[in-house]
Amino acid sequence: MSQLRRFAQVDVFTAEPLRGNALAVVIDGEGLDEAQMAAFARWTNLSETTFLLPPTDPAADYRLRIFTPGGELPFAGHPTLGSAHAWLASGGDPRKPGELVQQCAIGLVRLKREGTRLAFAAPPLRRSGPVEEPALRAQVARSLRLDEAELLDVVWVDNGPGWMAARLKDAAAVLALRPDFVAMQGLKLGVVGAYPAGAAEAFEVRAFVPGLGVPEDPVTGSLNAGLALWLQGAGLAPERYIAAQGAALGRAGKVHVAREGEHTWIGGDVTPLIHGQVRL
């Protein structure tokens, strides 16, 4: 039987409403089955919809399930930040002040407050290194409508969702892309290019996931987390930088990256837009 459940909608990776990536959060997710969660995610038709649940791991503050219109994800970045914000705003009390621990399908994810922002520790890559398969590299080039020679790197940056990434010569080349989403079917593809030295942002990022009903994601925390581990490890990015994402969709997302010791933190602002109840 359906009931009224607390619900929030927030804008992630922006301090300015309507300029980031929208997220729907069902705060009282306990009692919903997977089919109900998937149906609501299809109905919101946002890139992700999340459900907050009591943790089953004693080290966690809460448990999170993450759905796109096309299925469930084991981890995603903007849902992590947005759901943590909604959990805190709804009265969640972390075990350790200033820190949170989220339980999701990839395990435990640490978060911390950075002034007005939240940041999560980038999870380790499940798959890394160059994409060696010629057919996959050819599909990447074809789906981006580029010659293979224009792909400076094609690498795995998979921290759960299955991301691979292509690096182009600069940010302008990333913004100029007009992808072929039919050719891209089966890929979860991020693209990154650097801005000139001295620019406010270090990189422009775009994320394409047509197979999950999200042809282009406005601002993508999991992809930026994987990119950060790769770019910093390869000496292609500084320890602290800001990545821009979403301009191609009329957004202005800002992803704040900081490597501190053994962790790389992925942070951003969260702007609440809607709070109320939903009947599920």
Rank of each mutant, 00 (worst) to 15 (best):
W163T: 06
R127E: 10
L88I: 08
P94G: 09
G160Y: 10
A84S: 15
P123I: 04
R113S: 06
A165L: 15
H85P: 03
P79Y: 05
A165N: 02
V101Y: 09
Q102N: 09
D153E: 14
L125S: 07
R167S: 10
L118F: 06
P161K: 13
P134S: 04
L111I: 10
H78S: 01
T80I: 03
G162S: 07
R142L: 14
G115E: 02
D147I: 04
A166G: 13
L108F: 01
V154D: 03
P79A: 05
P79C: 05
V140K: 04
A166P: 13
G92H: 13
A119M: 03
A141R: 05
I106H: 10
V101S: 05
V154P: 08
D158G: 04
R127V: 09
A105E: 14
P134M: 10
E114H: 10
P123L: 11
Q102H: 08
D147F: 09
L100H: 10
V157T: 14
H78I: 00
N159L: 02
P161H: 01
A89T: 07
L168D: 12
P161D: 12
V140D: 02
E148W: 10
D153I: 00
V140N: 13
L118Y: 13
Q103H: 08
E114K: 14
V157W: 00
M164E: 03
D170W: 11
A121R: 13
G115Q: 04
G160W: 13
Q102R: 11
S90A: 15
Q139R: 02
L151G: 04
L146I: 09
P79F: 00
L152Q: 15
P161Q: 06
W163L: 11
M164G: 14
E99S: 12
S143R: 03
A165C: 12
T116L: 05
F120W: 03
L146G: 12
R95M: 13
P134G: 03
C104S: 06
L111E: 07
